[in-house]
Amino acid sequence: MLNRIVDAVRTGLPESTPPQAAAALTPPHSAVVLGSRWEGRVVYALFAPRGRVPAVVVKADTHPDYQPRLYQEHDALVRVAANPAMAGLAPLPLGVHRCGDTVAMAQTALPGTPLNVVLRRRFRQSRRLSARDHARALAWLNTFHSSASEETATVGPKVVLERLAQVLPGGAPGAEELTRWMTRRGSDLGALTVPVRPLHGDLAPSNCFVHRGRVRVVDWEGAVAQGPPLAEVLVFLNHYARAIPGPDSRLRDPQERFLEAFSGQGWLNELTWNTWRRQLRALGLPDEAAEYLFVATLAELAAGQAPTAHAKRSGSRRNWSGLLALYAEQRQTASGETASHGGARVPAAAP
């Protein structure tokens, strides 16, 4: 089956195909399977002769329901390739091809090590190294946003409160206090205008490849043409915290890491909020809206209304709902000295 797929891809290659990619598609093929089939597709990495790293990635559906995602990824990569600033920072599309009933989508492979693997390999975690990781990922994101449109979206207090009521049960610990605070804060801030940007949809560390000091991003199956980018940033910050191993090199409980990053004490909490605020500033949003927009974005993710790859999955919504409830509870029980509003630990903005 792989030979038939590769033959179909090779016959339809664009003229701009890099030589290494063309060589990887020329028989005899050297390939390994990367992705599992349970998701509805299989992923092959193809190597050029004597190549030590893959030159081409081919994704083929194993169930017809997955075919639209392959077309979606190809279309996203075509849009990204149209931005010259993104050269080398995302795969190049090599076409979508039919091979009988199977749809195959080909793209160039990117060099590098996934950021979650980089974290696992570190002898010791530190604020300095994690700050560098954050800076590299957001440098990529800001480059991606350089093709921004003039469109905007509005975060209105009424919609935020309605969404919060939908996903945070009134009897949950801390829910009433958080809702009161969001009501007051929303009244003070008013409607906030958020720029619309192109979106990757799943900016997790596992999709961020680090190579020669820069981040490159793969896995564009869940890409969204454009939308407010707040959920994209929050997904990265949450998944980055989850990917940091404990002292025994094992991954910690995801909820524990979430609280450590957004409501705890120590360098990870300080770094996470500084990065969140820095990205808000890049979008023209005020520092004083940081926690309000954080809670509003959590509620948007919990309601399945955020522009992300997994927004509609029930498991994803339950996960974000659980994190929102945890934050509300922690905010209620946190000591008054940790924040001016007497809630969770939200460090003061860096100068």
Results as ranks from 00 to 15, higher is better:
Asn238Gln: 02
Asn207Glu: 02
Val57Arg: 02
Ser187Gln: 12
Gly171Tyr: 10
Ala8Pro: 10
Pro307Tyr: 01
Val53Met: 14
Val57Cys: 04
Tyr71Gly: 15
Gly100Asp: 12
His200Gln: 13
Val215Met: 06
Val78His: 06
Lys158Gln: 10
Ala139Met: 10
Val196Lys: 07
Arg132Cys: 07
Arg124Trp: 06
Ala139Trp: 13
Gln125Tyr: 00
Ser187Asn: 14
Asp7Tyr: 13
Gln255Lys: 07
Gln107Asn: 03
Ala309Gly: 09
Val33His: 10
Ala153Cys: 10
Asp61Glu: 15
Trp38Cys: 15
Ser130Tyr: 08
Val215Ala: 10
Thr108Pro: 00
Asn83Glu: 13
Gly201Asn: 11
Asn3Val: 14
Arg50Tyr: 07
Trp140Val: 00
Ser30Asp: 11
Gly100Met: 08
Pro27Ala: 14
Glu300His: 07
Trp320Ile: 09
Met1Phe: 06
Gly322Trp: 03
Ser316Asn: 15
Asp101His: 08
Gln305Gly: 13
Gly35Gln: 09
Ala45Cys: 12
Leu301Lys: 08
Glu256Pro: 00
Gly156Val: 13
Ala306Met: 02
Val42Gln: 04
Gly266Glu: 12
Val159Gly: 05
Leu271Lys: 09
Leu161Ser: 12
Ala175His: 10
Trp273Asp: 00
Pro254Ala: 10
Val80Glu: 04
Leu301Gly: 03
Glu15Ala: 15
Pro254Ser: 06
Arg317His: 14
Lys312Asp: 12
Arg120Thr: 06
Asn319Glu: 14
Val194Ala: 12
Asn207Met: 11
Leu259Ser: 06
Val215Arg: 00
Arg128Asp: 15
Val159Met: 14
Leu237Met: 07
Ala148Asn: 15
Ala82Lys: 13
His74Ala: 06
Arg52Pro: 01
Val217Ile: 15
Ala339Gln: 08
Glu337Ser: 09
Thr17Phe: 07
